[in-house]
């Protein structure tokens, strides 16, 4: 990955999530397509700079104020603010997620009453932050949405559970545990929810195979979708 690092501007506070080579995958033998030398770098989204514009600044200010009442600074809790597709995402350090969520729910200027669950994502090549948990929050009082993103390394897949603050996240966190193996600390009953209780592994991780079987037709076989040579752009 070292030579790809040069492709990324170090001032943008972004990390390399993945590097793809060629245009076809999975690779089997020599790539004769002529695209073998193609290198695509997938980076995390760049940090937004003040002013964010619109109500985003108000939310960030209210959050900074609410956190300071807890004796925390904005930068201590939030490592990055991302604005993309007209959505505001706070990248939150996992050790301060609970303080962040508590402020988000209870501060009168914020009042995000609902957490609409959590989505997991797995970036196996993103150094020390392979596992991502993304939370959408909804404020019915202010009719606004914000998002929070928390990462954890695969070697230490722990993120504090939000069930104490948003009880609705109970099943959502079980689902992310089931599929990604993120352990939500202090969750009241972190068990598998979709897969059988004795299932080995966490199926939505990228290194977990799809489990398909070859398609057979008139003697010829086609490999399952994840083993097929196919264009990935």
């Amino acid at each position: 990955m070292s030579e790809e690092k040069n492709l990324v501007d170090p001032n943008q506070n972004i990390s390399i999530k993945d590097v793809r080579k060629g245009a076809f995958g999975p690779s089997e033998g020599a790539d004769t397509s002529g695209f073998g030398g193609l290198v695509t770098v997938v980076t995390s989204r760049p940090a937004a700079a003040r002013p964010f514009g619109g109500w985003f600044d108000q939310v960030a200010d209210a959050m900074a104020l609410a956190l300071s009442e807890k004796g925390l600074s904005f930068e201590q809790v939030i490592s990055k603010v991302v604005i993309a597709q007209s959505d505001l995402t706070f990248v939150v350090k996992r050790e301060h997620l609970l303080a962040f969520a508590q402020s988000l729910r209870d501060d009168p200027a914020l009042r995000f009453e609902m957490c609409l669950g959590v989505m997991g994502a797995h970036w196996p090549n993103e150094n020390n932050q392979e596992l991502h948990a993304i939370y959408p929050f909804l404020s019915m009082t202010h009719n606004k949405r914000v998002f929070a993103e928390v990462t954890a390394p695969e070697a230490d897949p722990h993120i504090p559970s939000l069930t104490g603050i948003y009880p609705s996240n109970n099943w959502h966190e079980r689902e992310v545990y089931d599929f990604f193996g993120i352990i939500f600390d202090e969750h009241p009953a972190l068990t598998r929810i979709e897969m059988p209780d004795d299932w080995p592994g966490h199926p939505q991780r990228k290194d977990y195979p799809l489990g398909g079987i070859p398609v057979e037709y008139k003697g010829a076989t086609i490999a399952p979708a994840d083993e097929r040579r196919s264009y990935h752009g």
């Binding site: 793809r20 669950g117 099943w171």
Partner: peptide, 27 residues
């Protein structure tokens, strides 16, 4: 009903997640 979509720039979704209301409401 929320659709969460991640792309890595390719021709296939990197990850799609649905926040299904039935799933949540059954709680």
């Amino acid at each position: 009903l929320g659709a969460f979509v991640i792309s890595d720039g390719g021709t296939k979704p990197y990850r799609v997640h649905f926040r299904d209301p039935s799933f949540n409401n059954l709680q």
